[in-house]
Every structure is written in structure tokens, then in C-alpha cells.
Amino acid sequence: MSEERVPCVEGLFSEENGVAVLHGSKCSNCQTPYFPRSAACHNPDCDDSNMEDFDFGGKGVLWSYSVADFPPPPPHKFDQPFVPYVMGVVDLDCGLRLIAQMVEKPEEVKVDAQVQLIIDTLYHEDGKALTTWKFKQI
């Protein structure tokens, strides 16, 4: 672990003992989960919004995915040369349908695969590795 790892956006997620944690919130009245944190519950059937900080993570099932064959425009950042990557949409066991890059190559990815949330490098800047949350097939 020679290089310093820094989240690409502060406060959204962290790595605790090697485990990926997303910092979101949950309404204690209707149990609706939110990521990123939400100041209020958006469920129209919930008449008593009561938000509490809540950490998400763990495993899920890949609902679908797409491939970025070309680099997206800023504010996205990536290491040169650009390598096509997979973006997965995952139904996490904790109740969130979450989007993230996947660590696998396009030809390795299968819809309905079991995946694990991890923290991984997104790009490098000023000698540091900027990290984000990603999925890894298990």
C-alpha cells in the first residue's frame, strides 16, 4: 500500500477495514433507503418523514449493465489511455438499486450475476489514487 487512497468525493463513502460503506440515510417511519443522504423522505405515502444516517453496502444481483465505449465528458475523470469500462445497475440486498462501475472487462460481465460492493481506484491525480465505489462479480 504505497500510494495514498482518497475518495473522489468526500463524505459519500468510506472503506472501513477493507469493507465498502456508502453513507446514506433511511426514513425510520417507512424504512425507505436513500443514497446519497436525503434531508427528507420522498415517499408520498409516508406522512412522517424521519431521516436517520444509515450505512449501505454488501452484496446484490446485477440487474443490467452497459459499456462506456467512449470516454464520458467532464466532470468525469479517468487515467490515460482510456479503457472501456462497464457500468452496472445492481439490486443490493439492503434495498437499493445502485449504479457503479464494475471491475470486470465487458466480456466477463453477466446479467443476474452476484456482485459485491467494493472501493476501488477511479483515476490518479497528484500522485494519489482517487477512489469510488464499484461492483465486483463473486
Partner: peptide
């Protein structure tokens, strides 16, 4: 956040649906 943390070009949204 969607672009910085993930990076989703517009058409990838549609290709996710097509793949499903």
C-alpha cells in the same frame, strides 16, 4: 456525482435498458 463517481455517457442509460 453520477459523472464524477461513475461516468455515464448519455446513451449508456438506454443500453442498460436494452441489455435488460
Amino acid at each position: 456525482l453520477r459523472q464524477r463517481c461513475i461516468g455515464m455517457p448519455g446513451p449508456s442509460f438506454w443500453s442498460t435498458l436494452a441489455r435488460r
